[in-house]
Design a protein around this nucleic acid. Sequence first.
DNA 1: CTTGATGCTCTAGCGGCTAGAGGGATTAGC
DNA 2: GCTAATCCCTCTAGCCGCTAGAGCATCAAG
Lengths: 138, 138
Amino acid sequence: MNFPIGELSKRTGVKVPTIRFYEQIGLMPEPSRTESNQRRYGKAEADRLNFIRHSRELGFEVEDIRALLAMTAAPQASCHQVDSIARSHLLEIDRRIASLTALKGELTRMVDECGHGRICDCRIIEALADHSHCSAEH
Amino acid sequence: MNFPIGELSKRTGVKVPTIRFYEQIGLMPEPSRTESNQRRYGKAEADRLNFIRHSRELGFEVEDIRALLAMTAAPQASCHQVDSIARSHLLEIDRRIASLTALKGELTRMVDECGHGRICDCRIIEALADHSHCSAEH
DNA sequence: CTTGATGCTCTAGCGGCTAGAGGGATTAGC
DNA sequence: GCTAATCCCTCTAGCCGCTAGAGCATCAAG
């Protein structure tokens, strides 16, 4: 219940330098220190760091996480804003999927048309050189 | 046929500072200069820059583009390597789409379960705090 | 001849870490 | 009690692919 940073790292799967980085940017609070200046953590910090890690894994940006953490500090407030952050993140993910899917279409077409001959005849190179060959916008 | 950097920017849709950046990292060659030290470009440079822009739009990394450009300089060589770069990029895109789709599933589930009440009851916050609620790995 | 757009170089910043230098502290085994 | 391995500390710099800004020179149009 009063462990060093390496132990916090093991419990959460977040690397030690990353924990210090989170402290630096204010995502994690400054912990208490031993007499010899080493950081000591408890369960609260492990919970908070797990929350951060999980949010990052789900693709939330640090600023979103900062906002989400601030909201957990006001548990009686409405979760409307939480919902709004999550929904806009979901929209962003949809956009990214759509964009990547379009790219995948173009690339697949390019690779399929490659005759595996000489570079001067290569359809991939040709397609890269000329956007007007593309079927969709990007 | 001998135009300044702003004109090259307009023709290709690549911003002026980005063109200079590409020159700095060696993607674009050092162009000729006027007596007053201004860059002058021709059609060859515009073609090359279009190739770069289009490749970037399709998500190729700078190092990939460097390799692709080197290959176009040897037009008699086999396009095997071109194909290989494009295919591995395609695999990378597949991986990203799969990962984003998994995230989307988690997030959708979280948002759907949110009762729009108080933060202390919010399923989104709860789900972010505890990875074990997740249905899939990420 | 002036004005405003464009050009130049150089440096620093973004996000989200990661790596390394150069130390001090702790711990396990003998 | 000593030694060696492993931790911990701070600080700085680097990654990618740009983007922004300072502070100045040059150019084209009216």
